[in-house]
Write a protein that binds this DNA or RNA. Structure first.
Length: 575
RNA sequence: GCCGAGAUAGCUCAGUGGUAGAGCAUUCCCAUGGUAAGGGAAAGGCCCCGGGUUCAAGUCCCGGUCUCGGCUCCA
């Protein structure tokens, strides 16, 4: 079976699934059933399948496959198609969306589907061991929330049994990396019903990790000409009316808090505050560019089903900054921001980045705020800027721009090849006008500045969620909440263990003592399970020689002088 | 928010209408250890919450809350 054939096999399996369902549940109404990356799905209505029904559906599918069903394409006219699908309301609706008069249908046995193909010729081409019905799920018809929700059955499909099992194994591996699991095991963060959905609480280990990350980001920004600002968590509703956020995102904002007959809202963004500070007084071109950074905690009312650990919370802290500059400075500022992204992710060990340029939907230019010429200029600048910093190019997302801005989103690829959108760099055409931002240029004329929003980690929460999965909880030494665990061979050497501990702590190395009454093996295990990078064992020999026996991520590194070890750790603790 | 599945000890989970369980973690005792689990004992429960059915509910039914898998969404 050839590689590109698997697409056809998957798509054909979708038809066979529908065929099996129609046989077993004649009342079922069928939606759509395409091939997807790892297999296929088909949507149904008017049935109620539970996961426990899947094996018997699968069995029926194998029976159909074995029969050797021939896939046959036919082209019919609209009238004929309407006749064929007269009892399938969803197919009729799909038929309405087709503009052509020649309608392609596929027959396989008794089953007919509205479908442009392509398919395999005969079901015998399918390896019956290579697929598996995976799960059921709800899915809106045609992917729109306004439509009815259908029942979707997902199947996995690969060339053969081994590839299927490889995929399942890989998926199980990914589950082991789940930051929610690791977060619990390493006591990094927690959620609590009484606190509220989507509001993370960082435990001491996670608190340290978050602090170190935040510190790294802020120090880096300071090195690159940024200044630090800080703004409140709530503001009067009037601010959000003027910024346009209330009009567009009211549903996604927390409800108003009423104080002294005025409504306040938790902030969903930091920008309007920064704009207010800019407008404090008349600004000169000599001040520009201004780069104002803030670890800004924002609150967005994500729908309950959309929440997901740290990667999709309701309260989160953006490593936000706004760069206010002249038109001439825009290009260079975007380049600087892109270079900063590259530096930060390289330092964090995620060098594989993918750039995505989000531009306006060409069919819908009117819905965007701002001057057409400015947009074109900005889109061009962003393209040039990406090419300047990266040779691997970028992907264009037409219609991906937000209403006020074209943007560059940057995906970081993690250790198991998954892409995560983290950084964003956006050119804003909305706020400078809405808030009448100006500066005086060298000719004494009043001008509207350009404004760049940028969040490089994105948010501390989302980044940490991704980073935990990327590293599997094995953080680099400089980011590890606990860097060293000192393990005395027995209680007899507690005094020397204390000496080692205090030598490390004196140099602000994050060390702790494994003081419990356990065997050495058990104490080592506890340290490994907690993913402490350095375990140092001390006993009689070490005590006499003022050394430590070093174990780094499960590997024996031998015995070294205590002083040298402290020095080494001090070095590894700085970036 | 929608479709579906869950919620039992700190954690991971078993328990199909009749006295609430295991392993790990915790505490204590013995063992004083040389690189991933030494042995023993104890303690630990509003079986998510509220109703209902039943002689009897962790278990069945209804409502709610939260979690998970999808869908939709992510300024």
């Amino acid at each position: 079976m050839s590689e590109n054939n698997i697409e056809k096999v998957r798509h054909s399996l979708a038809h066979i699934l529908a065929c099996a369902i129609k046989e077993m549940y004649p009342e079922a109404k069928i939606g759509v059933g395409p091939a997807i990356d790892n297999g296929f799905y088909y949507d149904f209505d008017n049935i109620n399948i539970s996961e426990t029904d899947l094996p018997k559906i699968e069995k029926n599918m194998r029976k159909i496959i074995k029969k050797g069903v021939v896939f046959e394409k036919q082209v019919v006219d609209r009238k004929e198609a309407e006749k064929i699908f007269k009892d399938e309301p969803y197919k009729l609706e799909l038929l309405n969306d087709i503009e052509e008069e020649e309608i392609s249908i596929y027959k396989s046995g008794d089953f007919v589907d509205l479908c442009s193909g392509p398919h395999i010729e005969n079901s015998k081409e399918i390896n019956p061991e290579g697929f598996k019905l995976e799960r059921t799920a709800g899915a809106y018809f045609k992917g729109s929330e306004d439509n009815k929700m259908l029942q979707r059955i997902y199947g996995l499909a690969f060339e053969d049994k081994e590839k299927l099992q490889d995929y399942i194994a890989k998926k199980e591996d990914a589950e082991k990396r789940d930051h929610r699991k690791i977060g619990k095991k390493l006591e990094l963060f927690m959620f609590d019903d009484e606190v509220g959905q989507g509001l993370p609480l960082y435990l001491p280990n996670g608190g340290m990790l978050r602090y170190l990350l935040m510190n790294f980001a802020m120090e880096t920004y300071l090195d690159h000409g940024y200044e630090i600002v800080s703004t409140p968590h709530i503001a009067r509703e009037d601010l959000w009316k003027r910024s346009g956020h209330l009009e567009l995102y009211a549903e996604d904002m927390y409800s108003p808090i009423s104080v002294d007959d005025k409504n306040y809202r938790l902030k969903p963004m930091n920008c309007p505050f920064h704009v207010k500070m800019y407008n404090l007084r008349k600004r000169s071109y000599r001040e520009l560019p201004l780069r104002w950074a803030e670890m800004g905690t924002v609150y967005r009312y994500e729908k309950s089903g959309e929440l997901h650990g740290l990667t999709r919370p309701r309260g989160f802290t953006q490593d936000d900054a706004h760069i206010i500059c002249t038109e001439d400075q825009l290009f260079q500022e975007v380049i600087n921001a892109l270079k900063l992204v590259q530096y930060i992710y390289k330092t964090l060990g995620m060098e594989d980045l993918k750039f995505k340029l989000s531009v306006r939907d060409p069919k819908n230019i009117d819905k965007y705020f701002g001057d057409n010429k400015d947009w074109e200029e900005a889109e061009k600048s962003l393209k040039r800027a990406i090419n300047e910093v990266s040779s691997s190019g970028y992907e264009i997302d037409e219609g991906g721009a937000v209403f006020y801005a074209p943007k560059i989103d940057i995906d970081a690829v993690d250790a198991v090849g998954r892409s995560w959108q983290l950084s964003t760099i956006q050119v804003d055409f909305n706020l400078p006008y809405r808030f009448d931002m100006t500066y005086i240029n060298e000719n004494g004329e009043e001008k509207t500045p350009f404004m760049i929003h940028r969040a490089l980690l994105g948010s501390l929460e989302r980044f940490l969620g991704v980073y935990i999965e990327h590293t599997e909880g094995n953080f680099p030494v400089w980011l590890s909440p606990k860097q060293v665990l000192v393990i005395p061979v027995s209680e007899k050497f507690a005094d020397y263990a204390e000496e080692v501990l205090s030598a490390l702590r004196k140099k602000r190395i994050r060390a702790s003592l494994s003081g419990e009454n356990e065997t050495l093996g058990k104490k080592i295990r506890n340290g490994e399970v907690q993913k402490v990078p350095y375990l140092v064992v001390v006993g009689e020999k070490e005590k006499n020689e003022k050394t430590v026996s070093v174990r780094y991520h499960g590997k024996d590194e031998g015995v070294i002088n205590l002083d040298d070890f402290v020095k080494k750790l001090k070095e590894e603790s700085s970036i």
